[in-house]
Design a protein around this nucleic acid. Structure first.
Lengths: 255, 255
DNA sequence: CAGTGGTCTAGACCACGTT
DNA sequence: ACGTGGTCTAGACCACTGA
């Protein structure tokens, strides 16, 4: 009757390509190894470069590959487990593997949504602390911490008016105020231009946006918006330490 | 001297396009409204369809748009805050807004990485419970829960051999065993074909993969791998309730 | 400078949902 | 059947990195 459809894949080429590449990555490549360039790979698989790129983009999204303009495509190391502080940990910035570096501090009016949560008026100036989180020598997250003046009442106005020094002063005062709890949410986003620069990525790169509300005795003491590199990070929330397996590994070992 | 470069944007077209569209979305469109089709929009902005699509893809990734083949592109509602159980909550499945529906239960050998965490040998059969999480009538997550036989010793072998009924039996037995703690990690992934189907998305759609390890008195009682729709979900981890603002709103209101 | 990935074009055809 | 978004092509040029 009907025509014999041999190989009627009914599966997009880029999807099949991704599978093939993924398996090749497991068997034939070591972490850090450089892949052939895109034109070469596309020719080798007999597809247009755009199609090949679609497969590479997915693999990069899953943390399997790392691509850098002018350099090439390399096999990415497994994702880094990054501990996100639990309620007990207090203000991030303590542990050895949880190194937040204050970069700058300015004062500005907070975005309306932030102002509402902080319970300050929309046109009130708040401290905005810029911090970078570094793990294994790599910048993995960039944060904006919004601190109303009322949360750091003893902050001397004579201190450095901006810069890392003032950022440290604000953090010190926050520590002194103590902490009663936190609220946290995680969602997918794309990196703003400034965050992308700090994270050594292109604007629009996928990031995990962690929004944290810090409660002190008087109410909401501060709100933090931290953007983590989604390609390289696995956020961990542990009662008793980080999980040792990654989703990628599960996939790869599921064969 | 040099040529006067008026409008030397040095900013990709699709990026600028995304900004323009984003603003238009805020001012001229209501949630659920249908946008003009891609060919029309591309023509209107004077760009190729592929370029227009690049902008739409980003906006969809950020949860601003929803695109469905054969239907069109619509303005997405704000992301749903989905509570991820904290240590106190025990086995997910209780609360009103945390409805996990058992779908099926089979027995199979777990992927190697899972088997290692469960502390069972790689060729040992475990129960695999399939659950779907529904919020506001929408499927937001699909889960595979791996349960070694030793965690549900009293599970009658005479029970339904598979299907939703058996899934419920396994969950009931797990409840009986109690829970001492959990470990959790969140990372970005792309939907497998089966998960995509449950979530009404195309394979490869971006998802937040939540891997949870459940501890009982005897050790690791089960491991869960849940994939949440990244476009529509905002995962919340609260000491005291969910955050009420979303990243998108922050962005939009930051103007 | 050469080589890489990033952007962009102007088409074509396909799979799907609705009518 | 029609219109939608999804896939795919075969080019072109640009921006960046490193030798």
């Amino acid at each position: 009757m009907g025509t014999t459809q041999l190989e009627s894949v009914q599966e997009p080429k880029y999807w099949h390509l991704k599978t093939v590449l993924s398996e090749a990555l497991d068997s034939d490549f070591a972490v850090g190894e450089v892949l052939p360039n895109e034109r070469e790979l596309a020719a080798r698989f007999g597809v247009a470069r755009a199609t090949l790129r679609q497969a590479l983009e997915q693999l990069e999204l899953e943390g399997r590959l790392q691509r850098r303009r002018g350099v090439g495509t390399t096999v990415a190391p497994p994702r880094v487990g990054v501990a996100v502080a639990t309620a007990q940990n207090g203000w991030a910035g303590g542990g050895p593997d949880e190194a937040w570096q204050p970069v700058e501090c300015t004062t500005a009016t907070a975005p309306a949504a932030i102002a509402a949560v902080l319970d300050v008026s929309a046109d009130e100036e708040v401290h905005v602390v810029r911090r970078i989180r570094v793990t294994h020598g790599q910048a993995v997250a960039a944060e904006l911490l919004y601190v109303p003046a009322s949360s750091v009442p003893e902050l001397s106005a004579i201190d450095a008016p901006s810069g890392a020094a003032r950022a440290r002063s604000v953090m010190r005062e926050l520590h002194r105020r103590g902490l009663e709890g936190q609220d946290r949410s995680v969602e997918l986003g794309s990196a703003r231009a400034d965050d992308a620069k700090e994270l050594d990525r292109l604007p629009g790169a996928p990031v995990l946006v962690v929004t944290t509300r810090y409660f002190a005795s008087a109410g909401t003491a501060a709100v933090s918006v931290a953007t983590y590199r989604a390609d390289t990070c696995r956020l961990t929330f542990g009662d008793s330490g980080a999980l040792e397996i990654s989703h990628d590994e599960q996939e790869r070992q599921a064969s």
